[in-house]
Design a binder for these strands. Structure first.
Lengths: 218, 218
DNA sequence: AATTAAATTTAGACAAATCTAAAAATAGAT
DNA sequence: ATCTATTTTTAGATTTGTCTAAATTTAATT
């Protein structure tokens, strides 16, 4: 399994190709910042290896083996992210790039030992769930802050957008995972929110609210 | 800097090409288990990049920049080895293969933080010195056990051969770095030694003694 | 149903890193 | 100093992953 193959599987999974849903070559190309023709080539290759189902002009979806492989890479990526933050004091906006490299290290023992060292974490620094060794996903009952009704409360558990600028913005505004959130009011005009976060009242734009996952109370 | 380029620099350094000594393409090819013609190609490439001095038919040696680059890779390799042993309970015969991968991860912060986490180790699990961040080497006053005179004493500080079989052999015979060693007698016939290790008397072959580094007392 | 726009694939090319086989240079022996 | 054996390089081919440009298929519209 080459690094490139692994990256394709990961991308296809992130685009939803794990649920036997067909992902177009265009969508994959855009996500990976490559050309559709390159995706076609790789689709054939992965298909030959039994990792994806590929029908010409119809896009690709992951086979069971493909899903398993993708999950193992995602597992590694997220475990390394936790390691970088918890053990090496990286900030959550610094970890992605390095984890992109570390996720390709081939050593089952290494991953398992890192998992153990971290005491088997369930979520990465951005709140994304870490698949278990046997490829199980811990789905979480979370919704976007922008979809929470007025007066509902919850805890901030993840980010949808984990780009560096967004993460830095959150840091600057003292918005962190684990914070309690209550929706006080919604502004019809621009969909901005008035919220209480850790007791402090603040106003946030729809853009922000639509990229924060909250676990609702009760 | 590609992974392949890094591996060539590392190999040339290990073959002594850091002291403006010319290393033959054949020697490099043999060490890397590749063909001399491939080495020639890479020699040209590295020469163009100013990392090696290359004269046709005369072999290659590292430039100052080449040495610095090689040392930074070796530094990473050895720090990762320490990490694997100290933090993840790998045995010293398991670390090389994984470190060969980890040494190519590109993140200065990552290396520095690993260094810090390990409290700035000076030697790797096989007793090889870890270059400092600015490329300095801590040479050690060590000699091979096979060259120690009768009745001399010392501490086992490193292995010359760090192959898996040799390391496993040492484990099985309770020979570890840090052990005290005294040479009791040498057998002229086969150059085998009678030694006292950690108070216990034992006999070892020349083959073994010629691959153990000892720091002599006084 | 025919036409057109968009998406997708094919064909052919390229760069990196490797190989084989043949040619060239070096070094050792007489 | 010449010859020969060895080492080293060159030339051309291969594989992987990518690209561009052209051709094909699909989907949308009328």
């Amino acid at each position: 399994m080459t690094r490139s193959e692994e990256n394709y599987l990961k991308t296809i999974f992130h685009l939803g190709g794990g649920d036997s849903k067909s992902i177009t070559t265009n969508a994959i190309a855009e996500q990976m910042e490559t050309k559709p023709s390159s995706v076609t080539d790789m689709a054939k290759k992965l298909s030959e290896k039994g990792l994806v189902d590929y029908v010409r002009y119809q896009g690709v979806s992951l086979t069971a083996v493909g899903v398993k492989t993708a999950l193992s890479i995602i597992r590694k990526h997220r475990l390394w992210e936790v390691f970088l933050v918890k053990k090496l004091d990286f900030t959550w906006d610094e970890v992605h790039e390095v984890a992109e490299q570390l996720e390709h290290i081939k050593s089952e023992k290494l991953v398992d030992k890192i998992d153990e060292l971290l005491d088997f974490p369930k979520y990465d620094p951005h709140g994304d769930p870490i698949p278990t060794k046997d490829g199980k996903f811990q789905e979480r009952d979370e919704k976007l802050l922008s979809e929470m009704p007025i007066n509902s409360q919850g805890v901030c558990v993840g980010v949808k957008d984990s780009s560096v600028p967004f993460l830095k913005f959150l840091d600057k505004n003292r918005i962190a995972l684990g914070n309690t959130i209550k929706v006080l009011d919604k502004e019809d005009f621009d969909n901005s929110l008035r919220i209480q976060m850790e007791g402090k009242e603040m106003r946030i734009s729809h853009q922000i609210a639509a990229n924060l996952y909250v676990k609702k109370n009760d």
